[in-house]
Design a binder for these strands. Structure first.
Lengths: 228, 228
DNA sequence: TAAAAAGTATAAAGATTTTATAAAGAGGGC
DNA sequence: GCCCTCTTTATAAAATCTTTATACTTTTTA
């Protein structure tokens, strides 16, 4: 059996080995590259189903590799980063990374993210009907239902939720959300976002204190999870 | 067997081929046009049951084709668009498109939308009688009854209500309503709309202060709800 | 590990925008 | 002219957005 081909771009040999063993035992075909240059080459030759990219590469920064990949590669890229460099993570997400993991990571976490990303890119996500377990949103009718009851949302609330739903499973940064919903002039008004996230949770979550749909990624942004 | 005739207006030959194969193998009769001009002509000659229209046409913009079609063509139009142009999609829906698909799309998704659109317009034709709990409209006889009593509506009131009834459950934007009822030159006269909504509520709602049929979506438009 | 710092959640007050409604004025058909 | 409908105006009411204040949680530092 084969779940797909994954390219790992990382200079640390221990990490590469760990990933190789973990992924292979979960029936992924694994390719490895130790430098950015090598990684770009292998990506072009193999066109893998998913790429895991370490931001702390020696020869050229992971950011530059990410940008070069994104010029032609449209499938999922998951980045690895050390805990301290939150800024790097945000920058990478803004540059088109799909998800991130902070080192050291649990392998269960890694596999969950990989599966989520693969599932996501497989279904292409251009639905105008988005159906979670208890939540249903219809982008042409502009309606949101929870357990078949229409939920009344204000214009801003709806815009925000629709944006999340269209990017299910993916972390959206504060900057990105503020730019998309309030416009480029308001990317520093993080408080707006907090207020509206709280309002949405109050309306769509069964228990707003323990949200299962609108998840906080502290220091980075928020993530919408439909089904798990 | 024949499920109906579909006209595809798209300049990309690959897309046309893909649609032709997909649709024909699902027992639709397919006509194709590569330009807007050709598409308008074929639509007039064949009067297809549904039109699939690419917004990115070369000779005249898809929007202009859509507008010209909507001057006489009342069946379903599904638009195709590239992912980036969200503004285009909103504009097209405002101009009377029934649904949209973002390229690249899965063929399953496409077929689902086509079936949904055909089903919808079929039930619209057969049921030119629209029946809510306490409200009944007959689109061919141009009459509206509330609890079996005929309600007297002016021309504008009727046009507006019929438009709502044909789009039950869907939020209709101010722009769209103004364009459909008063014409493109009056899309800024939101006050007309408010006056007529108030008048309609006075006539069709049991309690105009707490409407259950004509729902306000503040900042966006209105939505008509038949039964709940 | 505990304290400090940074980031997040939430309610609620104030400001602004949007909507509702009545009623007066305008225009057209009979 | 009279009646009906449409358009315009004025004002009240409602809804939404923004800001403020404070409590809480997570992350970082020592």
């Amino acid at each position: 059996m084969n779940n797909g081909e994954i390219l790992v771009i990382d200079d640390e040999v221990q990490i590469r080995k760990l990933l190789e063993i973990t992924l292979q035992s979960n029936d992924f075909l694994v390719k490895e590259a130790a430098t950015g240059k090598e990684g770009l080459l292998m990506a072009a030759n193999h066109s893998p189903d998913l790429i895991i990219l370490d931001l702390g590469l020696p020869d050229e920064s992971g950011h530059s590799v990410l940008k070069k990949l994104r010029q032609w590669y449209s499938k999922s890229i998951i980045i690895l980063s050390v805990q301290s460099s939150e800024e790097d993570i945000v920058k990478a997400l803004d540059n088109g990374a799909n998800d991130y993991l902070v080192k050291p990571f649990r392998t269960g976490e890694l596999l969950a993210r990989i599966r989520s990303s693969l599932r996501h890119s497989a279904s292409e996500e251009n639905n105008s009907l988005i159906d979670c377990d208890d939540l249903q949103l219809d982008l042409t009718a502009r309606t949101v239902k929870k357990n078949n009851e229409i939920i009344k949302l204000t214009g801003t609330e709806y815009t925000l939720l629709a944006l999340f739903a269209k990017n299910e499973g993916k972390v959206l940064t504060h900057q990105y959300l503020l730019r998309q919903v309030w416009g480029a002039g308001h990317i520093n008004e993080s408080q707006y976002l907090r207020v509206y996230i709280a309002q949405l949770r109050k309306k769509i979550e069964n228990n707003p204190n323990r949200p299962i749909h609108l998840i906080t990624e502290s220091g980075v942004g928020y993530r919408f999870v439909g089904k798990n």
